[in-house]
Design a protein around this nucleic acid. Structure first.
Lengths: 333, 333
DNA sequence: TTGTACGCGTTATCAA
DNA sequence: TTGATAACGCGTACAA
């Protein structure tokens, strides 16, 4: 690899003159410029971004941590974020922790080392302090740390409410909703379960939350779980779960001969393409992934510029897409 | 941010002694070590990876270019690759080109600038020369450049053959297979279409390839296309397509009242989770994504170490998973 | 065992 | 318009 000095030597100028041509920071006589450009071509010169970044004290890279990039929710989000970053001259470094606490910790450690300029956090297995005192611009997704740490999130209370309405209109009597074991008050998506439960109970409808531990993205595991649920709770006539487990449940229910939506209503939560690629149109609560992705980047860019944030809590409405797995809307195709 | 010199000053030693403690490159007296470690803690010192990388002439980052990270095939692949890289101390930088020729070009340009140590190419919209003379370790996926550029690929000929067998056993008379418009001989997945076509024709079965242009990851687009196909080719009784369009076709066919697999047999190609999350078990040709991911990394690591490759063409067998969308195997669940 | 001096590639500052 | 020099943070001969 040839350096800027090699070019300078070949063109009979000083290194800084080459730099000036490169960045257009000052006037260079057309003649000198020509000579330098010629030399750059001949040597096949490519500026060293590492050295550049070192000088400017920035790398031009933003990291995003996700539990698993395979997961459609995060891969979609990553796409929107990547697009937005690219528009602004940043590259995305994607870090998939595999739901491993240690691995997230290690990544956070590495990321402090000037290798990235900021971080978008799709994981949250650490203590809140780890995010609060990160030392670099950071945006949380779906997880509340403190009023000082910006967080971008869907209106999960609305999501829970819309789902509840759907079950109510469908005439359900006993609804199961599948949540995650690790959920604390900080995990904002938990709100959907809370509101769903409350809204149904107010109408005198039985509702029950089932918290499971799913540290892997494992469809067969969801399928097994669904079979167990159908055995253990034969009287349920409604279920809400994230896209992937909801899809598995649907499959398991059909396999044992349940009629959808006559016997059981299914509401899918998230709205990734998994909820869309089924033969049946699945009734789905859609999170505004594109909005969330764009906003995260917007906020991060502000932080990078040193601008103040007007607010650190950014919440966006969800949407319900009625389908063939609930009885509230009678849609015939 | 405190530097290595700040630590040295606080501990009353020279910077290089701190470096030695950091990297364990030489003996340091326990007493001095203690003092230094103390100072590092107090200053909350974190080594600057940028400076490190500059010195070592490597960044510790591998880039992967994909047309869209949302696509389950690439997100799964990325996951396996990320895992393998992480095991070896490398980080993954994911670049999603959005199927844009220009954007891929720009990315390739950036990636030459010492910001990454090597590249795994999931895209191939450039001229072959761009990959052949890249100047850094590079591994291609599914695309042949020359015998000098390593390529990792599934056995698509076998894939096409297995699919053909499935249609033959199912008694199909007219099979449509959906390919991509841009396919040249270099795009190795094209082989599956060639072999499918040939094998069916040899058995006297009508077969027809339909090449469409899909530069976006657009399920609704696939759905529209499927409806058109069903209108224009009402006599087909078999179809092969990638997971996503196959799923869309299945949906469209069911919606207009076709019986699966009685009226039409469907074979899905790739084996991402999209082929798995449907109510129906879809007959699927599975690419060995994990194997492909691991091998790509293995090869790249060898190149980074300067080792010679025994072979540059690495092909791995596919598998067929019989399901409910063909009549060859009668599987009842 | 520890310290000095320099190089890695780039750019900003100041002087010519 | 151009050049010399210092600086960014770290690692390694080489010297002490």
């Amino acid at each position: 690899m040839s350096s800027i000095r090699d070019v300078a030597r070949k063109a009979n100028v000083a290194a800084c003159t080459v730099s000036r041509v490169l960045n257009g920071t000052a006037n260079v006589s057309p003649e000198t410029r020509m000579r330098i450009e010629q030399a750059m071509k001949e040597l096949n010169y490519i500026p060293n971004e590492l050295a550049r970044g070192m000088f400017k004290q920035k790398a031009g890279i933003i990291a995003m941590l996700v539990p698993s990039i395979r997961h459609p929710y995060f891969s979609s989000l990553a796409k929107y974020i990547e697009d937005a970053l690219y528009q602004n001259g940043y590259k995305l470094m994607l870090c998939s922790t595999g739901d491993d606490v240690e691995r997230e910790k290690e990544y956070l450690k590495i990321l402090k080392s000037n290798i990235v300029d900021g971080v978008i956090m799709g994981t949250n297995s650490q203590e809140p302090e780890a995010y609060e005192h990160f030392g670099k611009p950071l945006v949380m997704l779906d997880y509340y740390v403190s009023d000082k740490v910006p967080v971008v999130v869907s209106d999960h209370a609305q999501g829970g409410f819309l789902a509840a309405q759907e079950f109510i209109k469908s005439g359900c009597k006993y609804v199961l909703h599948i949540g995650s074991e690790a959920e604390t008050e900080r995990v904002l998506s938990y709100e959907s379960h809370r509101v769903l439960q409350k809204t149904l109970e107010e109408k005198g409808i039985r509702a029950r939350e089932l918290d499971i531990k799913w540290n892997t993205f494992d469809y067969d595991g969801y399928l097994e779980l669904s079979k167990l649920i159908l055995e253990k709770y034969p009287e349920i006539d409604g279920i809400m779960a994230a896209d992937m487990p909801a899809s598995a449940f649907l499959k398991a229910a059909v396999q044992i001969g349940k009629k959808i939506p006559e016997d059981i209503c299914v509401v899918s939560y998230d709205g990734t393409f998994v909820s869309n690629t089924n033969i049946l149109e699945v009734t789905t609560i859609h999170q505004p992934m594109e909005k969330i992705g764009h906003t995260s980047v917007e906020v991060l860019l502000k932080l990078l510029k040193g601008e103040e944030l007007e607010k650190t809590y950014m919440k966006f409405p969800v949407q319900i897409k009625p389908g063939q797995t609930t009885r509230a809307h009678q849609i015939n195709i």
